[in-house]
Design a protein around this nucleic acid. Structure first.
Lengths: 106, 106
DNA sequence: TAATTACGCAACCGAACGATTGCGCGTATA
DNA sequence: TATACGCGCAATCGTTCGGTTGCGTAATTA
């Protein structure tokens, strides 16, 4: 079973859940009301998010509040870092090319 | 068939391919040499990457060179933006929200 | 105390995924 | 011109995914 951050954000419903619990802690029932799926389906998504540490759970009586663990989101950001460097370099290269064209340098 | 950027980067092999073709354009055979899978498997991955515009292909004789389309990577970055705001601005407030829930403060 | 509520867990099902194998087609090379 | 090469496409197969349904359990409420 693959359970990493990238697999977790692959599902659109899961991304929507992430957006919800990013703002405030919510219970599975409260979350499920925002979708056309059952509570159990949402619970499964939450379980996956907890499993790869994208969400924290906090029990309160018979309710369980889920909230996004922002720290883990940085892992995606960290992975993007290598490409961010490239797409900035590419832009710089384009600039230099353009500059060279302007200055008639090959 | 789900075919968006997030689904594309979900697979670890595909992420490795992305890292390869980010540096330079490569042929399917050349890419496949870096992995334990067949050329056809790599070709399938490349097809998915092209499909969601994460890669461009450039035919040259009987060879086809694939290279990363950095622009599309920004889509992920754009999605991360909303959470980046949270983890930078509200990092400390998140704990307060949790505490308030415990104490039944809205 | 009995009924209700909130939830996780397990079984199950159809669809999608990732990989392999076996082609056919165009391009290079002898 | 015959052969080898690079590639995409289609069929196939086992596995995983996302969903539903049906429970069991613990906490609340009547």
């Amino acid at each position: 079973m693959r359970r990493d951050v990238f697999q977790a954000i692959a599902d659109p419903t899961r991304r929507a859940i992430i957006a919800l619990i990013a703002l405030q802690a919510m219970t599975p029932n409260a979350i499920a009301e925002h979708f056309d799926t059952s509570r159990q389906a949402v619970s499964k998504h939450l379980q996956i998010l907890v499993e790869c540490q994208l969400a924290k759970q906090e029990q309160q009586g018979r309710e369980i509040f889920y909230q996004l663990d922002v720290a883990k989101m940085k892992e995606i950001d960290k992975w993007l870092e290598q490409f961010r460097k490239i797409w900035e370099d590419r832009f710089n290269q384009l600039d230099t090319i353009f500059s060279n064209i302007k200055q008639n340098k090959p």
